[in-house]
Design a protein around this nucleic acid. Sequence first.
RNA 1: GGCCCCAUGGUCAAGUGGCCUAAGACACCGCCCUUUCACGGCGGUAACCCGGGUUCGAAUCCCGGUGGGGUCACCA
Length: 485
Amino acid sequence: MSEVKVRFAPSPTGPLHIGGARSALFNWLYARRYHGKFVVRIEDTDLERSSRESEENILSSLRWLGLDWDEGIAAGGPAGPYRQTERLALYSQYAEELLESGWAYRCYCSEEELAAQREAQLAAGEMVGYNGQCRNLSEAECQQLENEGRKPVVRFRVPEGKVLTVRDQVRGDVSFDCHGIGDFIIVKSDGIPTYNFAVAVDDHTMGITHVIRAEEHLSNTPLQILLFEALGWPVPEFAHISLILGKDRAKMSKRHGATSIQQYRDLGYLPEAMVNFLALLGWSPGAEEEVFTLDQVQEKFSLDRVAKSPAVFDLDKLNWLNGHYIKHSPVERIADLAVPYLRQAGYLPETVDESLMAKVRLVTIAVREYLDYLSQIADHAGVFFTDPGYDDPEAQAVLSGEQVPAVFAALREQLTGAAALDEDRARALLKQLPKELGLGGKLVYQPLRVGLTGKTKGPELYHLLPALGPAKVIERLEKALGSAI
RNA sequence: GGCCCCAUGGUCAAGUGGCCUAAGACACCGCCCUUUCACGGCGGUAACCCGGGUUCGAAUCCCGGUGGGGUCACCA
């Protein structure tokens, strides 16, 4: 078999969304697994809705996810250009070929006529499809209509009484009766090809061997096969992946919350978590291990382990995975990623120097175990950057304990003159304290926590101490003592 | 409505006729640890949509029903 070549062909009509990202991922995985090529092509034949901005967003999201492509937009390659609006001449050439061979014909029906027709069919409960009005127009009739100022579209002449079978790698054979398919438009009246036509031409001319895409395209496939056959081209292999559903089991859409990769990126999700999560949606490694990198999946990926049933997007699991990666990535990286969120919360200035960055790292160590995604850091990091108040009744109750002054004094004693304080020293010190004072842990640690943060819950004390530094610790404890009633 | 797809716990899913008195993960609920780390440890609740077949034997095969979804554009 020739080399595997797959593609991801988004329409730049919006940002890359979850479903598109998964399609791209599966294609990428397939290409890598079988040492083939991955092509990215832009399908911008919808002039109204397409934008360069969306295209940029899609490409940047793909790169962010780590899905690189061997050929295509921005990468170049032998079958370029890779933007459909730049391949118009190619489509006309094949449309012409189809017209000449009789597989296609010009249709002069107006949009109004078509709409009325469709409405009538729908009302009668019939199959919706073109009624073939212009199917056998003579040369003279065409000329006549054209003289009336009508702009024709080009339609494909769907053979009658034929049954088409899509050989699908995940679904098996799926058959469609041509009787249910009306003559469809392949070139619009403005000369722009229609989706199905452009796809067939591109997939062939780009040498695509496997078309892996979402299930919503399954019903388009017979039309494309018709085109391949009429043009005398080999039909590629197909694999239709089931849809990703929202909580209400309907296809994921904007009303389901964050649906674009960009949004997750902005919220502080890590690309490896997204990719890991997406890989698990509709595919299973078969083994028990579910946490893996792109490199690890590409070794195991195969279409026969792709699920046929649709999958509900489970935010809880994404959060868990992302939290997992946050906990296990190098602190430096997480701290760097956290900076924008801390800045946005007003905890950091525009420029962060090295000593401040050192503190951010300590803060990151202290709070990352509580995070599902990075933007949440703002909710946990406040105690490190803003001096607390002690109005909370619960806090007051703890602070009013009679042992509190002694506890604070003891810690202060330990800290005075201490230049720096690392986690190990903080742990040792904290462990010593109760013994030294002859008190139970709770009586020592609880007031310290409240004194330092104004709260009864929060980061570990041994993280708090180093991050705040001796001077700040002493300062806060004094203030806490002063505010005890 | 026509056509098409799908159907194991709340969710993702393993399972390709006997190994299933059905894995694992997320979520949830307990207990432990309770201020030393290690996705902390241990445990629990919870599922084969229904009805017919085929078979010695069905979650697994066939048919029907039901349910969910997709698609029916000069959008992709």
